[in-house]
Computed example of a mutant assay.
Amino acid sequence: MSISLLAIFDFIGTVAFAISGAITGIHKKMDIFGVNILAIITACGGGLTRDIVMGNFPPQMFIDPFYVVVAAIIANIVFFLMYYRKGVPVKFSGIYDKGLFISDTLGLAAFMVDGVMIGANFGYEDDLFLLVFLGFITGVGGGVLRDVLSNQMPAIFVKHVYALPVIVGGIVMVIMHDLMHTWSAAMVISFALVILLRFMARHFLWNLPKVEL
């Protein structure tokens, strides 16, 4: 069950982050090539970074390009939908902003689960710090690369406790596995927890403290 469940989370994360990357590329006025590259980097960049950290060479995205193809397909669907609609009507801009938030949140939650599970499958079940870090870097890595390539401050540093829910979700996932001795329930609960924390942060305008100059 865990394997099929992990595949579902992989697919959810890839589609969600591909949408996020494509929308960002379109808003930055990139051409169709740029939109595709940004969508693929956003969808696969976290896994790429995770594999480099783990010394897993070549990274999985180059061995099995299935999710690269999925990201490219999603990017082109988003591009042509917005191309033929001539961009985003002003009255619908809030809907697109909300869609970007939702796709980002689903991607973060799904890839957090993916990162923890990949670490566990590599034999690191007893290393809480490594598992949480792998969940964290898989969850936020693609978004950081997206923001850097689109010339904006990475959301991880400024926005609605972007990264903190991923860290909390990873910790909860590992602890729940230790308590229940099953990954399936831990995956689902921690996935839901990340989404809940992100929506609460957006609703209540939670942000980590920073110095106002």
Results as ranks from 00 to 15, higher is better:
Phe62Gln: 04
Phe62Asn: 01
Phe62Cys: 01
Phe62Asp: 04
Asp64Met: 12
Asp64Lys: 14
Pro65Thr: 07
Pro65Asp: 05
Phe66Val: 14
Tyr67Cys: 06
Val68Glu: 05
Val68His: 07
Val68Asp: 12
Val69Leu: 15
Val69Gly: 01
Val70Ser: 02
Ala72Asn: 11
Ala72Trp: 13
Ile73Lys: 04
Ile73Leu: 15
Ile74Tyr: 06
Ala75His: 05
Ala75Ser: 15
Phe79Lys: 05
Phe80Ser: 08
Leu81Tyr: 13
Met82Trp: 04
Tyr83Val: 08
Tyr83Leu: 14
Tyr83Glu: 15
Tyr84Cys: 01
Arg85Asp: 13
Arg85Trp: 00
Val88Asn: 00
Pro89Phe: 03
Pro89Asp: 07
Pro89Gly: 04
Val90Gln: 15
Val90Ile: 15
Lys91His: 11
Lys91Ala: 10
Phe92Pro: 03
Gly94Asp: 10
Ile95Cys: 09
Tyr96Gln: 04
Tyr96Met: 14
Lys98Gln: 11
Gly99Tyr: 05
Leu100Tyr: 07
Phe101Trp: 06
Ile102Gln: 10
Leu106Trp: 01
Gly107Val: 02
Ala109Lys: 11
Ala110Asn: 07
Ala110Tyr: 08
Ala110Thr: 02
Asp114Arg: 14
Asp114Ala: 15
Met117Ala: 14
Ile118Leu: 12
Gly119Ile: 06
Ala120Ser: 13
Gly123Tyr: 07
Gly123Val: 12
Tyr124Asp: 12
Tyr124Leu: 11
Tyr124Pro: 01
Glu125Pro: 00
Phe129His: 14
Phe129Gln: 12
Leu130Phe: 12
Leu131Pro: 12
Val132Trp: 00
Phe133Pro: 06
Gly135Trp: 00
Gly135Ser: 03
Phe136Leu: 11
Phe136Pro: 00
Phe136Ala: 01
Gly139Leu: 02
Gly139Ile: 10
Gly141Ala: 10
Gly142Gln: 09
Gly143Thr: 07
Gly143Ala: 10
Gly143Phe: 08
